[in-house]
Design a protein around this nucleic acid. Structure first.
Lengths: 208, 208
DNA sequence: CGAGCCAAGTGGACACTGTCAACATACTGA
DNA sequence: TCAGTATGTTGACAGTGTCCACTTGGCTCG
């Protein structure tokens, strides 16, 4: 996708760079990912990647865009499992979001790390994927407002608030900033559901 | 603080490193901050910093710890302006948190970036400052629970939920991931208050 | 079918980085 | 006064991203 045609000398190096780059990213983190090491692993010269990506930043932007695609897919699928239940959709989407982030922590870090200053085609692709993923969230809010479940207001802003909640949770969990988090699969999911539920439920005590 | 005594050759290089390091951090970001450039600006050799910090990571950890100190101070001061109003405290603390983060975006990025793998005295100091800042938040929640304003539950967990909200908001604003954010001082503060209010107010429509 | 063009890949160089090692200096306390 | 030690310096090394000139190979078109 990053470039065109089929296969010349190597056979779609661009795809290979993204594949092995993803592995290296997961293993070492964005900071430690080196273009030369990447080229070495694939078995090409240290300059070959520059035929397919303008920059190191451009490659990283493409890897980040992949992450946003996955994130959007996972969130949409989770929300689809709760038809006619806007709160359930929002919580399920939140839990799925966090779990996806925790499944690929280094990629998530990359996705929300520094943006490359000069815009390349790859960074533009990143922006598009990011906005698309956010769109799923807005859609959930809008449906909930139409059903009278969520309070009125700019759906973009309410969606932004929800995003802040799950993004904050994801980042803090990845950076191990939150103590006393259950490790196991089921207990953790319950914990995540509770954390994601605080926003729609409200922190304030309601009149009983 | 990082080392001891008064002044030898240079005159408290450790403090100077943190000072100029802070400037360089604000100007260039954590990734671009280079030890050699730092030493060059101060006018010492490229090895001098190693007499005061074990590592580059150790210096960065100290800079991050400073950030957590500032953050804790600002949050506590903001909360103190709203006695006998737990919701007001929480919102004010949140707004102050975000504004402080936006005032020093690069430092905030550093504070929540990758942790250095091997623990140094400086990274331990970072952890302590971070926990202290979080403590202010827990205290607000606990007072609110005692007053019957907040629902019952583990105050640590409720505080964590609030932290997720404001941390997510801060990160997304710093990375310019949220559109349509008012720029001006007063309008922005109002926007922040609204965003920070969604958690205590709840997203769900209440029975009127 | 063959010539030529251009995408794809190579190897060398440069400036820069963090850090190790050996050395020089200046302050301190006995 | 003098040794010890905290502080600072110089040189080196491996590693990085990227510029540059070069080669290679497959496709296109006359």
């Amino acid at each position: 996708m990053a470039t065109k045609r089929k296969a010349y000398h190597h056979g779609d190096l661009a795809a290979e760079l993204l594949r092995v780059g993803g592995e290296l990213l997961a293993a070492e983190g964005p900071e430690a990912l080196s273009l030369r090491e990447l080229a070495r692993r694939i078995g090409v010269s240290h300059q070959a990647p520059y035929r397919h990506f303008f920059d190191k930043d451009a490659l990283l932007a493409s890897l980040a865009a992949e992450g946003f695609m996955d994130l959007g897919r996972v969130v949409a699928k989770a929300a689809a499992r709760h038809p006619n239940d806007s709160v359930g959709q929002l919580v399920a989407a939140g839990v799925a979001y966090v779990e996806q982030g925790l499944k690929q922590p280094e990629r998530y870090r990359l996705m929300f790390g520094r943006q490359s200053s000069s815009p390349t085609p790859n960074s533009q692709q990143l922006e598009e994927e990011s906005h698309a993923a956010f769109g799923h969230l807005v859609a959930i809010i809008e449906r909930g407002q139409a059903n009278g479940v969520f309070k009125s207001g700019d759906p973009q802003e309410l969606a932004a608030a929800a995003w802040c909640q799950v993004h904050g949770l994801t980042s803090l969990l990845i950076d191990e900033r939150l103590d006393e988090v259950p490790a196991g699969g089921k207990a953790r999911r319950q914990f995540l559901a509770q954390m994601c539920g605080h926003l729609p439920d409200g922190l304030r005590r309601r009149a009983t």
